[in-house]
Simulated assay, not measured.
Amino acid sequence: MPITQLVADPNVVIVGDGPPLVLAHGAGGSVAANFTGVIESMSEQRSLIGIDYPGSGGTPVDAASLDLDVLADSLVAAAVDAGFDRFPILGLSLGSAVAVTAAIRHPERVTGLVLTVGFASADQQIRMVVDTWITLADVDRIALAKYLVSLGSPAVLAQLDDASAALAIDATLENYPEGGADQARLAASVDITGLLGAIDVPTLVVAAGQDRIVLPATTRALAHLIPNAELVEYPEAGHIFSAEETGRWIHDVTVHLHTHHL
């Protein structure tokens, strides 16, 4: 099913039919880029609602609006405007911090969370990745694309020959959003540690065992700070999931939603 942009608000994406699932994408991504597999697999059973952050998708660059509270409020408003009073949120990387912020700021709206390769606060690994990302974004976008590809899981990188590596670099360069560096800066500033103890909705945390952007220990720490959170780990996964890992992720998300009647 194709993604539909709301004409009245081009940064809002809605697709599918059924109970709602709200999508919060990661830094340097978009709803379409980060959730293609989710949209293809779940749109016949779910209404999927997301926003593209400033500088992604159809949303103009606006660094001043890249604030967790602003993004969380905008995400919730998009779901409410689409006709849904209560809904779970699926967050990816930076989107996990957006999802947590939304749950705390709008407890009457958010019914559950799935936090994927997320983090409570930016550790040294995240900050060093972002520092390199920002520097390359300013001087050499091709080098930035090569760097981002190089952060994939060892299993994926080991399968790349020269031709497939070139394709991956070209795809990364083509899909890189103008606001990517600004979104990365926001990720490097995240510290939602003080919010996590107040989360009282069913929460699934997904860690990637070979993640070289958000270390798996950092995602595990996020899970441990959330009361009653369930943690699952994909031992061979990197920050960007393979097709097989994406299938498992969608299965786990679906089970979590069904188990908790979300």
Rank of each mutant, 00 (worst) to 15 (best):
P54C: 11
S65H: 13
G29D: 10
E40V: 11
G29T: 09
A63W: 04
S41D: 14
T36H: 11
G37V: 06
S47W: 04
I49V: 10
F35L: 03
V38N: 00
G58M: 08
D67H: 05
Y53V: 06
I49P: 00
S56F: 06
S43C: 12
E44V: 06
I51L: 08
D52S: 08
R46P: 00
M42S: 03
E40T: 11
S56K: 03
E44C: 06
A33Q: 09
D62F: 06
M42V: 08
A64T: 11
L48K: 02
G29L: 09
P54D: 12
G55K: 00
D73M: 02
M42C: 09
N34F: 06
G55S: 12
T59R: 09
T36L: 14
G28W: 05
Y53D: 02
S30V: 07
S43N: 09
A32S: 08
G57F: 04
I51V: 15
S30G: 12
V31Q: 01
L66A: 10
A33S: 11
D67Q: 13
I39P: 00
T36V: 12
F35E: 01
V31T: 07
A72H: 10
P54V: 03
G57S: 06
S43V: 11
G29K: 06
I39V: 15
A63E: 15
G57K: 02
V70Y: 14
A32L: 09
S65G: 10
D73S: 11
E40Q: 15
D69E: 13
D62T: 05
S65L: 15
I51G: 01
Q45D: 06
S65F: 14
L71V: 03
S41T: 12
G50K: 00
S56T: 09
I49Q: 02
R46G: 00
T36I: 13
D69M: 11
V38E: 02
L71Y: 04
S74R: 15
P60V: 04
